[in-house]
Nucleic acid binder design. Structure first.
Lengths: 140, 140
DNA sequence: TCATATAGTTACTTTTTGTAACTTACTCTT
DNA sequence: AAGAGTAAGTTACAAAAAGTAACTATATGA
């Protein structure tokens, strides 16, 4: 049953939406591009892949696998496919023997990696606080 | 077997590490605070919870559940616990009947939500490109 | 006495991930 | 000429995470 508070929140949301224009994430993913796109791009493995490709202009499958420590062939290959489909990375295969496949960021991927680096820097700076908090919480 | 290219990359990484000082994410999560902390904070559900708490200073369990469209009681309750443990949010329970529990961002959570909003804005601005790319890729 | 409300929890099912062995095709070694 | 090595994956199976829906406690109001 809707309460007065509910309606107030709904109004506030509408207002905020007008102000900011970017709070679509209250919708289910299939109706909300932001949720949809974000679920691919900020997946744990995807971010690591993209960050490494931000450092090295081109990396091959097995090299990437070494840098993205702990990823399996299966997941790496899956993620590379969706990241390619979404336009972040580029795949170039050279029919040598054995085959050589090079992955690199697209221009679009480059622009994303910059955002990602900011977040990573925040994480780097703040992870000690989180770890300390976690420890304190564990004692309660 | 290590190749020359391998060693070059390792050297380059070391160099980059000195320059940037924040590429710890090549380690496994249990040795890399950044990967560890990020896996909690940029989880899909966590980000939505934090974003909503960025809009509303305090939200109760069921209200949060309505905003974070599609989340289940189980996962919401799990995420709230770890977000509290990690110091992003605060839980305040009032022993009324029925019980009232209020969630809100800590100061630390506030600082994170700002970073998160930047990322969300980028997503909002760029999701059309991603969707277009995805469509084009689907036709290949 | 029975329905209502909040903030969860629990048992069970389904989906997603992880593991490790296998594949293909050619070249290099013995 | 047989066998090992190599890059970039794929596949079948096991384990973990997530989703589903019913259930709990406690007091209030009908």
């Amino acid at each position: 049953m809707e309460t007065v508070a509910d309606n107030q929140n709904v109004k506030t949301v509408k207002k905020l939406e007008k102000m900011f224009g970017h709070i679509d994430y209250r919708h289910p993913p299939e109706l909300c591009p932001v949720r949809d796109v974000m679920s691919v791009a900020s997946d744990q493995w995807s971010t690591l892949i993209i960050l490494w490709l931000g450092y090295f202009p081109v990396l091959r499958f097995n090299k990437l696998k070494k840098f993205v420590y702990g990823i399996s062939n299966k997941v790496l290959s899956q993620r590379l496919k969706v990241l390619e489909a979404d336009g972040y990375i580029e795949r170039n295969a050279y029919p040598e023997v054995p085959i050589r496949v090079e992955y690199s960021l697209t221009e679009f991927g480059q622009s994303y990696v910059e955002k990602l680096l900011e977040l990573t820097e925040w994480m780097q700076a703040n992870s000690p606080k989180v770890l300390a908090n976690r420890e304190k919480y564990g004692l309660l």
